[in-house]
Design a protein around this nucleic acid. Structure first.
Length: 869
RNA sequence: GGGUGAUUAGCUCAGUUGGCUAGAGCAUCUCGUUUACACCGAGAGGGUCGGGGGUUCGAGUCCCUCAUCACCCACCA
């Protein structure tokens, strides 16, 4: 099979030549086109104009892109291409995420297949292995991004473990350290005993679980009675260090201050009053296990209770508990404790209870709140300025509601645990004295296990940062704080991302951005919704309903996927993937392609690019007017990130106005002389949405000599004659009515008569061709039926039989028109309407009434005329 | 428990600050192969905008309420 296109380089100008087959075949062009762009550095910032910058939220370098990324990519790329064409200094900076724990989990599965575990390796070894593992997989997603046509500057590609990111993380940590925002604390940490690491609150997944509520007697030491507590975790009673009741709970007032004995142990614990206890729940008395429950921990802090760790990092009971329970798993311990309670008559009763239990979002293991020493960030001083910036509207949110949600989140923020006990991440640059557990140093020599400072030995903290800690500086760390890029592009124009990371990421970028740069990191935030499966359910690998963007691209093309996926989609609304919209968009690409074919055909194979049109005919002026409107509407919609609306406007402008009306009109001799100009403008305006097909056309027509389409300027408003444009609108009205009548009556070839009407004289040829008439001519007196939707007197010569059936149709039309007349009349008779409504609205109504009355008049005249025949 | 969003044509969904007869694509029905395109063209049918109440000259749009669905946050010893 012969190649039907060739690329060659002649005199430094790249030409792209091929035939124009009937249908556009994306697969034949997309890769070639993207290579041309990339090799010619089309996506680098121009250095001219007002800056416009987006830094991509880095996708997981290890992942195969799912179809949601097609949406992200389309939204970002449309914005960027549009602003580039507007002449702005535009940057789209790509990146990839090492995705700490996520990737380590994947790698662990990989290891498991080889019968190994991460605990078989040192952290350094593991890190190196994973770095290579990710480097291999990374090419995959970079390839997919290119498939999607993303116009990013690959030379600025940033990986979240790159030096500049690590350095920024260290600088941030150091600054916080110096400012006293970082503290080492023994706190309850959400701990997965399977993965052996702690998590941030936000990473814990709560699921409903059926469990029991056990009611247990705690006898008073003075023998004066007992307190019954209710618990879902009887095994943790082995670590109880108190019992709490509500201060207002009269049932227990006289117990407060007394001492109870914890069954199955010899421990005596105080009964105290604390308002965190809920009066209505259980018995109103609660056991306190400070080392394994957040509320209990907080209460213990307030009342200075000791904290006993009874569940260890391995998920087994520790040596703190009586010997018979030691080494049991939590589940085993629970069963044993319950049995022993029963045997000892300590158990009052058991109730069923449904409640939420935290699980590891990766492996599903129940999260144990465990007491651990970790690095924490004091969030209040960071959250406060962020809240102020939000309330001062320094960032525009799409949709708006996300702003208030973020404020609400920030106002209730707890301190942030940034330590993770995994290998795949940025080592925490802190060292602890081997002699003094309280003596910590900040030091960046993390490649060393131990360091000597002032004659003392310090050993490295084995933990790494939470991924979100380093990625919170993403907007300026990628640019390089204080660099030229930073000066040019910070704050970013837009942060485009999904709703699931509004809290963990957007909020932290905002806080740390303000902290490190004194400015908000971005001027706008666009939150996209999720792409669900076609039936509206969540896509997941386990269900097997994941849609691969590459497969869609293979079938329909990248442009079709981009447009199909943004079509009709509002921000932050989850919606299923809709294959029909992609098909629709594919058809649209083909429409563009065939308009180009038609134009080339008209120009006898030589399509000349025109930039300064001379409008001659009415339809020319009309087309320019429509172009102006479309360009303005699309631009305005894109300025406000209303992508679906912008695409809709483009679609209907191209298809309805130009393809259906203008191109058809241009087939009439002497009409439609601006085809190449309009096509040129359309390619530019459509380019942000459908970059491949538009560039393919551009290059194929030989316009590449003037530079890439991707580098063209967005159209300016063009002058046109509105009165002449209106002539074509009038012609359209006549054409539409004639078509409708002929269709409804089932008659074909006919003539349209008029009495030397100026419009009919000048637009006769177009009307004849587009309405499918035999003739349009001026006569002394005509015959047939009058048109009723136009003020231009003309009548359609159809046979008597068809005319009779037309009458009944006319009656239905009359009734509708009468209704409208009544409607407008009533409105205008309403004094308060005329007084309160804006003048132009009232004027519109008056005009509408006049027009409708005229229509009604023509209809009744026509009926009368018929009845006299 | 708190919060957010959704409910518009058979289906999937648009509808910017309230203002012409509420739109699109797909699907359905008629007709059509006029040399850009059947991934096409022309025409048609189809909605009391979830229920109820309110504000207003005017409500799909704003407010209240109810119902159903989805999601987020918090948390239940």
């Amino acid at each position: 099979m012969l190649n039907n296109y060739a690329i060659f380089n002649r005199g430094g100008i790249i030409k792209y030549i091929m035939e124009l087959p009937k249908t556009y075949l994306p697969s034949k062009h997309e890769a070639t086109i993207y290579n041309l762009w990339e090799q010619n550095n089309v996506f680098a910032p121009s250095g001219q104009g007002e800056p416009y910058a987006i830094v991509m939220p880095p996708p997981n370098a290890n992942a195969h892109l799912h179809i949601g990324y097609a949406l992200t990519a389309a939204l970002e790329d449309i914005s960027v291409r549009y602003h580039r064409m507007k002449g702005r200094n535009t940057l789209l900076l790509p990146g990839a995420d090492h995705a700490g724990f996520e990737t380590q989990s994947v790698y662990e599965k990989h290891l498991a297949k080889e019968g190994k575990s991460r605990f078989d390796f040192s952290r350094e070894d593991l890190y190196r292995q994973m770095y290579d593992f990710v480097a291999l997989n990374r090419q995959n997603f970079e390839k997919q991004f290119r498939q999607l046509g993303i116009s990013c500057d690959w030379s600025r590609f940033t990986f979240t473990l790159d030096d500049k990111i690590v350095k920024q993380a260290y600088a941030t940590f150091k600054k916080m350290w110096d400012d006293g925002l970082i503290y080492r604390g023994e706190r309850l940490v959400n701990y997965c005993t399977q993965h052996r690491t702690g998590f941030a609150d936000i990473e814990v997944e709560f699921r409903e679980a059926e469990t029991n509520l056990w009611y247990i007697r705690y006898p008073l030491v003075d023998g004066s009675g007992e307190v019954v507590v209710a618990t879902t975790r009887p095994e943790t009673m082995l670590g109880d260090t108190g019992v709490a009741v509500h201060p207002d709970d009269e049932r227990y007032t006289h117990y407060v201050g007394k001492t109870a004995r914890v069954p199955l142990t010899d421990r005596e614990v105080p009964i105290l009053a604390d308002s965190f206890v809920e009066l209505g729940f259980g018995t109103g008395a609660v056991k306190l296990t400070p080392a394994h429950d957040q509320n209990d921990f907080d209460a213990a802090e307030r009342h200075d209770l000791p904290k006993m760790t009874v569940v260890g990092h391995d998920g087994k009971m520790t040596s703190e508990v009586p010997e018979k329970y030691r080494g049991l798993t939590v589940a085993e311990a629970r069963a044993t404790v319950v049995a022993d309670l029963e045997a000892g008559q300590w158990l009052v009763k058991t109730e069923q209870l449904t409640h939420n239990v935290g699980h590891c979002y990766k492996c599903g293991t129940v999260i144990e709140p465990l007491l651990m020493e970790q690095w924490f960030v004091n969030m209040q001083p960071l959250a406060k300025p962020a809240i102020e910036a939000l309330k001062a509207n320094q960032i525009v949110f799409y949709p708006e509601t996300k702003q208030a949600q973020l404020v609400n989140y920030l106002e209730n923020l707890r301190d942030w645990n940034i330590s993770r006990q995994i290998a795949w991440g940025i080592p925490i640059p802190a060292f602890r004295s081997v002699d003094d557990a309280q003596d910590w140093l900040y030091d960046e020599r993390v490649d060393q296990e131990t360091i000597e400072v002032n004659g003392k030995t310090y050993s490295r903290d084995p933990d790494v940062f939470d991924t979100w800690f380093s990625s919170s500086s993403w907007p300026y760390a990628t640019l390089g704080l204080g660099s030229q890029d930073f000066d040019a592009f910070y704050p970013l124009s837009l942060m485009e991302t999904g709703g699931e990371i509004l809290y963990p990421w957007v909020s932290r970028m905002l806080m740390l951005g303000l902290y490190n740069t004194g400015q908000v990191p971005f001027k706008a935030v666009y939150i996209h919704g999720y792409v669900m499966a076609e039936d509206g359910s969540k896509m997941s690998k386990s269900i097997g309903n994941v849609i691969d963007p590459s497969e869609v691209i293979d079938e329909f093309g990248s442009d079709a996927l981009r447009m199909g996926i943004i079509s009709g989609r509002a921000p932050a609304v989850n919606r299923g993937y809709d294959r029909r919209r992609v098909e629709e968009a594919r058809n649209f690409c083909n429409k563009l392609w065939n308009m180009a074919r038609f134009m080339q055909h008209q120009g006898e194979g030589k399509a000349v690019r025109t930039q300064s049109p001379v409008a001659q005919t009415s339809v020319d002026h009309w087309a320019l007017g429509q172009l102006n409107h479309a360009v303005a509407d699309i631009g305005k919609a894109l300025d406000e990130y209303r992508f679906a609306e912008a695409y809709d406007t483009l679609y209907h402008f191209v298809w309805d106005d130009i393809a259906a009306w203008y191109v058809e009109a241009s087939k009439v001799e002497g009409q439609g002389t601006l085809l190449s100009y309009l096509l040129e403008r359309i390619l530019i305006v459509a380019h942000p949405f459908a970059p491949f097909v538009t560039e393919a056309i551009w290059q194929t027509l030989g316009w590449g000599n003037d530079g890439f389409l991707a580098a063209q300027r967005w159209p300016e408003t063009i002058e046109y004659n509105a009165r002449k444009a209106d002539e074509f609108v009038a012609a359209q009205t006549i054409i539409t009515e004639v078509r409708a009548i002929l269709k409804a009556m089932g008659t074909a070839a006919n003539r349209l008569y008029h009495r030397d009407d100026a419009l009919l004289n000048s637009q006769g040829d177009i009307i004849k061709k587009l309405a499918g008439l035999n003739d349009v001519k001026s006569v002394e007196s005509g015959q047939g039926i009058y048109l009723t939707t136009t003020a231009h007197v003309c009548w359609l010569d159809i046979d008597r039989q068809a005319a009779d059936s037309y009458l009944s149709k006319l009656e239905a039309e009359k009734q509708q028109t009468e209704k409208r007349v009544a409607n407008y009349t009533a409105r205008l008779n309403n004094d308060s309407y005329v007084k309160s409504a804006p003048e132009h609205i009232v004027a519109q109504t008056r005009q509408a009434l006049a027009d409708t009355q005229a229509d009604l008049q023509r209809i009744t005249d026509e009926q009368k005329r018929f009845s006299q025949l």
